[in-house]
Every structure is written in structure tokens, then in C-alpha cells.
Amino acid sequence: MRIVFRCDPHLADYLQRPMPARGILPDWLRSMPAKAFSEVHGREIRTVKQCPPFVDAMAHGFVIPLPCDVSVENGVFSWDWRIPEPATRGHPRAPLSFHVPEQLVGAPFADGQAALKFNSFWTIELEEGWSLLAVHPINRDDLPFRLITGLVDSDRFHDGGINFPAVWTDRAFNGVLPRGTPVAQCLIVPREQPDLVFEQLEGPAKTAYESTVAEVLAQPGIYRKRFRAKRRRSSAE
């Protein structure tokens, strides 16, 4: 899969590039202990730091970084980002804009508030037949906002930037959202819908199920050792 990112030439030296998600895992995950004592089990058990599906989900795809520091004070957003006038007409200069509350009427996550819009400073071009699924950075409930998920056919729509709407969830937050904060995690998905096939566990499938479950219960790390695919690093890492 080849993904092409383009930015305004006047801003190239001012922007952080989209980056592989594995390169921006949060500090809380890195500092999490590998094991913790469980009162229920009466012994130490492995934490999610040792759960490959949990970590691999957080490390999958690429993230869009916030291009500058954004200060938040009593619900007011501000920034001091001095960049040149873009060479491209209609190109944004502000890191944020907003959707009025009426655009989210009836949405259970909006709670009557306006939505932020993280403006895009990169266009994204995918190969034919693929779409871009933008989600909230996975397992990142520590961030004071919640991205609104969107799917864009970026093999066709790639001449303009994709903006990323979000709802601000931590209304008590006062401080700085630092430059480089991941505002969206992007996953590349095939546009063609799969065929759903339903079968019963019988014969070899039943035998394989019983054997696999027994192995998983008998010793830790079976998924990681036998089933987890090796991740190829991208050229951006």
C-alpha cells in the first residue's frame, strides 16, 4: 500500500508529518507494568501491555498530529502559530475551526455543544479501491476530546484536505494541547464489502477449536508466538 501525502510548499517546513501510529504510543502504555497483582486470582497476572491485539490496534495505521500548541482556558481555544501565507488558494491557516451545534442535532455524543474541527494541512491519496477510516486514537480516552469517526474514499477524493471533527469531552480541561498530539488515527480499508459466510463448528473445525483453546489456556503467549503476524515497518519509520 502506497499512501501519498501532499502539503502546501510554503508550510512544508512548519508542519509535522503524519506518522505511523506505532511511533507515537502514549507514555502511560510505555510505563504500564507488564504484570499486576490480582485480588481475584491471588497472584500476579499479565496486563494489557502484554496483550498483542490491544497494542497492535493502537499501533496500526498512521496518525494525524496537531500542527501547533493549542491553549484552552475556560472553554476558549487559542494559539500563537506564525506561519506564512499558503501558496494555495482556500488553504487553512488555523489549526482549528468549528461546526455549529445544529449540525449534530440528535447525535447522542454531542450533548448540545458545537464540534471542533481539526483542520487538515495534508492531502491524502490512496490506491484504487481503498478508503480511509479516521477514528479516535485507539484506546486513548486520556485525550480531552473524542474524534467523530468518518470514512473517506481517498483514492478519489485526494485533491483537498480531510478535516477531522471532534467533540470536546473534558470541559474542566484548562491547559495546553501540545503540538504533535494525535488528533486522528487513520486505517486503510478495502471499499469492497466482504461476503459473510456462516458455518457450524464440526469435524476439523471443531477439533481445531478445542485444540487451540486448550493451548491458549495452558500457557501464556500462544497467540503472540504462533498466530501473530510480523508487522512490516513503513518507510516513514
Rank of each mutant, 00 (worst) to 15 (best):
L11H: 00
L96K: 06
D195W: 12
F77W: 02
S120C: 02
A110H: 05
H10L: 07
S38H: 10
S131L: 06
P65Y: 06
S38V: 08
F54K: 04
I83G: 02
W130V: 05
Q193R: 12
L217H: 09
H158C: 07
W130L: 05
I124P: 02
R140P: 07
T123R: 00
G61Y: 12
D142S: 13
A166K: 00
I24N: 11
R231K: 14
G221T: 02
R2I: 14
R43Y: 15
G161D: 03
G161Y: 04
V167K: 13
L126T: 00
P165D: 00
V55Y: 03
E192A: 12
R146V: 15
Q219D: 05
L187H: 01
P108E: 09
M58N: 01
V48I: 03
A172F: 13
F198Q: 15
R146G: 09
F98W: 13
P182W: 09
A214L: 09
S235N: 07
A114G: 08
V189H: 10
T88G: 06
P101M: 15
E215N: 14
G61K: 13
G75P: 08
A12V: 02
E210I: 04
I64P: 01
F157P: 14
R82E: 11
E44P: 06
E39N: 15
M58T: 04
Y223V: 11
L96T: 09
A34R: 13
A34I: 15
V176M: 10
L15K: 02
L177P: 12
M1G: 12
L15T: 00
Y223N: 04
T88S: 03
R171Q: 13
G112V: 07
E210K: 10
C7F: 00
G161C: 07
S78R: 11
L133Q: 11
Q16F: 01
A214S: 12
P108G: 08
F164A: 04
D141I: 11
L151C: 11
D159Y: 09
P20W: 01
N139W: 06
G112N: 07
D170W: 03
T123Q: 03
D155P: 01
R2Q: 14
S211Y: 15
A205D: 14
A21R: 12
E85F: 05
P194Q: 06
G129F: 01
G180F: 06
L201W: 13
T123M: 04
I188W: 10
R22P: 10
R82H: 13
T149H: 14
R93G: 11
G61L: 07
A21D: 02
L187V: 05
D153C: 14
E199F: 08
V167H: 12
P65Q: 06
D159G: 10
Y14P: 02
Y209V: 08
F164E: 01
A134F: 04
N174H: 03
S131T: 15
S120H: 01
D111L: 13
L29F: 11
G61T: 07
S154C: 08
D155C: 07
Q103D: 09
L133M: 07
L11R: 00
G129K: 01
I148F: 10
L116F: 05
R17K: 03
D69L: 05
L177M: 12
N119Q: 09
A12Y: 00
A57G: 09
L96M: 03
D155F: 00
T212G: 13
D8K: 00
I188D: 12
D195Q: 15
K225H: 10
